[in-house]
Write a protein that binds this DNA or RNA. Structure first.
Lengths: 216, 216
DNA sequence: CCGCATCCGTTTCGATACTG
DNA sequence: CAGTATCGAAACGGATGCGG
């Protein structure tokens, strides 16, 4: 049964927290920032959240107008969840909250790293040379594939792999994050077996070098 | 006993939510945005939160480095809670979240409005004429007093009333909010008995007119 | 397999009462 | 004033079930 607990405060902050303040709600929104996702994708992205929790949060977020349930056109036929325009407005807030969290004096505990989180950081902090030619790269993390399009010094990330990428990279979220702003980490990861690549190596170099990722 | 539940995700957003994602945590932070507060002040500002909850959240926020407990110098002798530098970094995020919440399609339920919230909105959206002379105004809401300093088109708000304000306004949070960008609402509120003023009426007019508060 | 719903033990919340 | 103690209610988290 979905949560219906309110702070009873007309303040905008309290009303926002009535909508996205429940446990896991903002992480569900984060998972949808890169594009629509199916229920099972969300469960795999948030393995620590139980299935009923995810179902409850999706219902609440939908009823509050943050996300929307959509039926994919045949032959896919399956259902996906996607952000509404209002839900997408949370993106800068979530990114700011993420930056705030990484600046904190918390001990860097050993824990997992979500693929979406790594990709959001890649998109935020990658600084591909603006003069580099546009390119398309497939990134596989946690057995799921995304497309990174490099153009005009920007990176766009969308779900699902492209038909014919210029380059391809398979690794884990933490290793990907470690590569940001760390030229050479890619080669090390490949020789360690933590990463595999194919296609044009130069494309990956453009994507990963020159990042503005805050180190330490 | 304080909560010690983690999302187990190294993502910055998840780590931020480990710190300020518990129920009431962000509202406690919001109450401290305008300055240090005593335990009792926080309880009065958040009447729907039970005392043990407030105590738990303060302990957690302190142990995570968001707030700090400070002993006031004699003769006050009492204890106050204040934001650390890291905690103050949450201010733009909280303001953005508040804006997001007010933009939502939620029905405007009848509920209370926190004094801090009204004052944060006043500070954010007041557009006092830059050429107006600097002035100091006392604002009393919910039996507590704040100081609003008007200077150079900006408004600064601090706890506690000034010794000799140029003007004084006593009302309730919702009425104050309704006055923003609503010239004439002040007079109506006064004749309704929902507001009382003293001192230079022009100072209050400068403070409340020309606001950029989003209406509707 | 996907998309949940149900059951159940544990944790947290929220209200009231109480103490230094 | 500044919290702590207690307790019933609700939410969480994990396991399992079940129709499509």
């Amino acid at each position: 049964m979905p949560t219906s607990r309110s702070y009873g405060d007309a303040c905008g902050t309290a009303r926002a927290l009535d909508v996205v303040g429940e446990r896991w709600a903002l992480l569900v929104v984060r998972e949808l920032l890169l594009g629509p996702q199916r229920f099972t994708d969300l469960r795999r992205a948030l393995p620590a959240a139980s299935s009923n929790l995810v179902a409850d949060r999706l219902r609440e977020l939908e009823s509050h107008g943050v996300i929307r349930r959509r039926k994919l056109p045949p032959p896919a036929g399956s259902q996906v969840y996607e952000l509404t325009a209002w839900g997408r407005d949370l993106e800068p807030i979530l990114l700011a909250l993420g930056d705030w969290g990484t600046r904190g004096p918390l001990p860097p505990e050993p824990s997992s790293l979500s693929a979406t989180s790594a990709l959001l950081n890649l998109r935020s902090y990658a600084r591909p040379a603006p003069e580099a030619p546009p390119a398309t790269c497939q990134i596989e993390l946690d057995d799921r594939a995304w497309t990174a399009e490099i153009a005009a010094g920007q990176v766009r990330i969308t779900p699902a792999g492209p038909a014919r990428p210029d380059a391809s990279l398979r690794t884990d979220p933490r290793t990907l994050l470690a590569m940001l702003g760390n030229p050479g980490a890619l080669e090390v990861a490949i020789s360690d077996g933590r990463a595999e690549t194919s296609g044009d190596p130069q494309v990956l170099r453009v994507l990963l070098e020159n990042s503005a990722f805050p180190t330490g």
